[in-house]
Design a protein around this nucleic acid. Structure first.
Length: 596
RNA sequence: GCCGCUGUAGCUCAGCUGGUAGAGCACAUCAUUCGUAAUGAUGGGGUCGGAGGUUCGAGUCCUCUCAGCGGCACCA
């Protein structure tokens, strides 16, 4: 950096990544003439640059580009900063056929300088700053992958070719980083899900999960845990229909806005004869699999008269929802077409929003703490362009959510324009193994749906009033949350969640009877226990169950049978503790007791 | 949905320029009864995601299609 700082702001000392992006762009333009440059920011652990080129880059091109980059780095060309008049900059980039740069400059606010960074002959429009020379980039970089991306993030605009890379101070740092990426990939929930026999997916039900017995044990533990939490927090639980008439979705507004993502079922009896059309007649009425639970919950709310004394009414459902997600969006457990939300709707008065929002945040954090999540990223998504409701209502709703966060000193960032059409929302994001963040918890403030579906309560004044509806979920969907949980624990679940808590492995046939007896004792205490009495060596059994990430292996041989003891071995340790069967039962069942 | 990559036994993967499929693990059987991360032997198992095409002949080339993966877009 070779200019004084004149404005307030934070300055990232490390500009290596954006330097590397510039070097990459120069290399690409040298190797692939005619390629247009667009933008190339630094990102977490790396950088990317988007190029416009008819022919996409191939994985082989990456090595060629890297080699060219190394030449540029060795050249040690100084980065120099220039400020150009707008018109000249536009003229220059136009003459080079850099249409995207021209568009960028034209869209810069009039007051802003057109800053150009040069590295020898090559130059780029850039805010900067940069290090003194290209040599400062160093050799510890690597281009990691290629992807498509839209110009300006707009799917109606040109598709660009994005090249991602990562750059570090020295080879050791780079190796470290690559090593960490490899380790993170080993925690991938899809890989562990297969290895640990938790669930699977297949073509015939793409985007929907086949839960295996072990995976479903985890699922049930979590559902039961949330149920206890909700009971303790004053919720009531309901169950609503899977299929409902399109009329209800029309009334709620979802039919017009989200129909293309709904699974619609014609309300017609199909033909069964071979060779005939499936439907005799063009269907007139349609049903839809519910993509969300709120309209159904309002139907329950509307049964009978509600008084202000009934509010806040917190209605929960483990609601199974279907959304016809775009094919390219599906991803393991993280993005599915059938999901079960830990959903609830709080019907309340406007005065109650703040206290309910606050109580919800507390509840959410107590749940996340039980699972050991500390890295939670909160976003407050505000009014989108296409929305229902007037601005005064939006002001109130956004204010209430912000207040709830501030009152608990929770840090958050604004996501302008990303709210739902009916109201603003809080999003609670968690990270997966490779650092991607996923929305899990949410709290949404809705003044619109109660209006559309005509929910009312009788106020103190004897008149009908509109309740406010708070949509909220803590886990989000069981599927996604379990996906994140698998990666979070790297498959090593705490005892209360582990599908199999104890494996009793016998050393010889003579111990088989005692192994079964001990298993029965542990099961009677509520533990999930399996026995392994195969005629295999104990080393073999230990290895197998350790790889299966069984938290406790109890070895029994003649000695244990004789003394009615268990030799316990914990996952991740090779220490053995000899303990009486009675004590083990007490101790393990205590430890396996789920949270509440 | 868009761009790119991938798709071979239950799993992980090999199969160069086209000549009618291989390994390890797993599984089955037999032997072994062996104290804390892999006992040995034998055996069964795939037509190479699907459809079509080129060819005397295709896992290997071409077209279409489906799915998965990496991103992008979307996400009530």
């Amino acid at each position: 950096m070779d200019f004084p700082i004149t404005a307030d702001g934070t300055l990232s000392i490390i500009t290596r990544e954006s330097d590397a992006a510039h070097v990459m762009a120069e290399a690409v333009q040298k190797l692939f003439p005619g390629t247009q440059v667009t933008i190339g920011p630094s990102i977490e652990n790396g950088f990317y640059y988007d190029f416009y080129r008819e022919k996409p880059f191939t994985p082989d091109d990456l090595a060629t580009i890297e080699a060219e980059m190394k030449k540029i780095v060795e050249g040690g060309k100084p980065f120099t900063r220039e400020v150009w008049p707008r018109a000249e900059a536009i003229k220059f980039f136009k003459s080079k056929g850099e249409n995207f740069k021209v568009e960028l400059i034209e869209n810069l606010p009039g007051s802003e300088d057109i800053r150009i960074y040069k590295q020898g002959e090559w130059l780029d429009l850039c805010r900067g700053p940069h290090m003194p020379t290209t040599k400062h980039v160093g050799m510890a970089f690597k281009l990691t992958h290629i992807a498509g991306a839209y110009w300006r993030g707009d799917h109606k605009r040109e598709q660009l070719q994005r090249i991602y890379g990562t750059a570090w101070r020295d080879q050791k740092e780079l190796d470290n980083h690559l090593q960490m990426v490899a380790e993170a990939e080993a925690r991938d929930h899809r890989k562990l899900g297969k290895e640990m026999d938790l669930f699977h997916l297949q073509e015939e039900a793409q985007g929907s999960i086949f839960w295996h017995p072990r995976g479903f044990t985890i699922y049930n533990q979590i559902e039961n845990y949330i149920r206890r939490k909700l009971n303790g927090a004053g919720y009531v639980e309901v169950k609503t229909p899977q299929l409902m008439s399109s009329k209800l979705w029309e009334a709620s507004g979802h039919w017009s806005k989200f129909r293309e993502n709904m699974f619609v079922v014609p309300d017609v009896v199909p033909n069964t004869a071979e060779g005939e059309k499936i439907f005799k007649e063009e269907p007139k009425n349609f049903m839809a699999l519910k993509p969300m639970n709120c309209p159904a919950h309002i139907q329950i709310f509307k049964q009978g008269l509600k008084s202000y004394r009934d509010l806040p009414l917190r209605m929960a459902e483990f609601g199974c929802c279907h959304r016809n997600e775009a094919h390219g969006a599906l991803l393991g457990l993280m993005r599915v077409r059938q999901m079960t939300q830990d959903d609830a709707h709080i019907f309340c008065t406007p005065d109650q929003i703040a206290s309910e929002a606050e109580a919800f945040c507390k509840l959410l954090y107590s749940v996340y703490e039980d699972f050991g999540f500390t890295d939670v990223h909160i976003k407050l998504a505000t009014r989108p362009d296409a929305r229902a409701g007037d601005d005064a209502t939006w002001d109130r709703a956004e204010g209430a959510l912000a207040t709830a966060l501030k009152s608990q000193n929770l840090e958050f960032t604004y996501a302008p324009g990303e709210g739902a059409f009916y109201g603003p929302k809080l999003e609670f994001h968690l990270r997966d193994a490779i650092g991607r963040t996923w929305q899990c918890g949410t709290l949404q403030c809705d003044f619109v749906l109660p209006e559309r579906l005509d929910a009312t309560y009788i106020g103190e004044d004897g008149a009908r009033h509109r309740p406010v509806m708070l949509h909220r979920a803590i886990l989000g969907s069981l599927e996604r949350f379990i996906g994140i949980l698998i990666e979070h624990y790297a498959g090593r679940f705490p005892l209360w969640l582990s599908p199999i808590q104890v494996v009793i492995a016998s050393i010889t046939e003579a111990a088989e009877g005692y192994a079964n007896e001990a298993a029965a004792a542990l099961r009677a205490a509520g533990l999930r226990v399996e026995t392994d009495t195969r005629s295999e060596k104990i080393n073999y059994k230990i290895r197998e169950h350790s790889l299966q990430k069984i938290p406790v292996i109890a070895v029994v041989g003649a000695k244990e049978a004789e003394g009615r003891t268990l030799a316990l071995r914990r996952l991740g340790s090779d220490a053995q503790t000899l303990i009486s069967l009675d004590d083990a039962t007490r101790q393990l069942s205590m430890e396996a007791k789920p949270h509440s």
